[in-house]
Computed example of a mutant assay.
Amino acid sequence: MKVIQAFRQADKSWKYRQEKEVLKNPLVLVFGNRFLLEDKKVLEDIRNEFPYEHIVFGSTSGEIICCNVFENSITVTAIEFEKSSFVVEAESIFKYEKNAEQLGEDLHKKIPKENLKHLFVLSEGSFVNGSALINGLESNSELKTSMTGGMCGDDARFEKTLASYKDDPKEGEVVLIGFYGDTLEISYASYGGWMPFGPERIITKSNANILYEIDQKPALDLYKNYLGDKASQLPQASLFYPLNVTPEGKLKPVVRTILGIDDVNKSVILAGDVPMNSVVQLMMASVDGIVSGARKAAKFAMKDRENQPQLALLVSCVGRKLVMGQRVEEEIEQVQEIVGKDIAICGFYSYGEMAPFNGETACDLHNQTMTLTLISE
Rank of each mutant, 00 (worst) to 15 (best):
5 Q>V: 09
6 A>P: 07
8 R>L: 13
8 R>C: 11
9 Q>V: 15
10 A>L: 07
13 S>P: 04
16 Y>H: 02
19 E>I: 08
29 L>P: 03
29 L>H: 06
30 V>T: 04
31 F>I: 09
32 G>W: 10
32 G>E: 13
34 R>V: 14
35 F>K: 13
37 L>Y: 06
46 I>E: 02
47 R>H: 10
52 Y>W: 10
54 H>C: 04
54 H>P: 00
56 V>C: 05
61 S>C: 11
62 G>A: 04
62 G>Y: 02
69 V>S: 10
75 T>Y: 10
80 E>Q: 15
80 E>A: 02
81 F>G: 08
88 V>C: 13
89 E>N: 14
93 I>M: 12
101 E>N: 05
101 E>W: 04
105 E>T: 13
106 D>C: 00
112 P>I: 01
114 E>S: 11
115 N>F: 11
116 L>G: 04
120 F>P: 01
121 V>H: 09
126 S>P: 03
127 F>V: 15
127 F>D: 09
128 V>M: 12
129 N>Y: 04
131 S>V: 06
134 I>E: 07
134 I>P: 08
138 E>W: 08
138 E>K: 10
138 E>P: 10
140 N>W: 09
144 K>E: 12
145 T>N: 14
145 T>E: 13
145 T>I: 15
146 S>D: 04
150 G>P: 12
153 G>T: 02
159 E>Y: 14
161 T>N: 02
163 A>C: 15
166 K>V: 04
166 K>T: 10
167 D>M: 12
174 V>P: 06
182 D>I: 02
183 T>W: 08
195 M>S: 10
195 M>F: 13
196 P>R: 08
198 G>C: 13
201 R>L: 15
201 R>W: 12
209 N>Q: 07
216 Q>T: 10
216 Q>Y: 07
219 A>D: 09
224 K>I: 02
224 K>W: 04
226 Y>K: 14
226 Y>I: 11
226 Y>C: 05
227 L>G: 05
228 G>K: 08
233 Q>K: 14
235 P>W: 01
235 P>L: 06
238 S>E: 02
240 F>L: 15
255 V>Y: 10
255 V>A: 07
257 T>G: 02
257 T>I: 01
259 L>S: 05
262 D>K: 12
265 N>A: 06
268 V>D: 03
270 L>C: 14
272 G>C: 14
273 D>T: 07
276 M>T: 07
278 S>A: 12
280 V>D: 03
281 Q>A: 03
282 L>V: 06
283 M>Y: 00
283 M>K: 00
286 S>N: 10
288 D>K: 14
292 S>Q: 15
295 R>I: 12
297 A>D: 01
299 K>R: 05
301 A>S: 08
307 N>E: 09
307 N>T: 07
308 Q>V: 11
311 L>G: 03
311 L>K: 09
312 A>V: 13
312 A>R: 00
313 L>R: 00
313 L>T: 01
321 K>C: 00
324 M>N: 04
324 M>S: 15
327 R>A: 14
329 E>C: 09
334 Q>T: 10
335 V>L: 09
335 V>G: 02
343 I>T: 13
352 G>V: 03
353 E>K: 03
356 P>R: 05
356 P>L: 08
356 P>N: 00
359 G>E: 05
360 E>K: 00
362 A>F: 11
362 A>S: 13
364 D>I: 06
373 T>R: 01
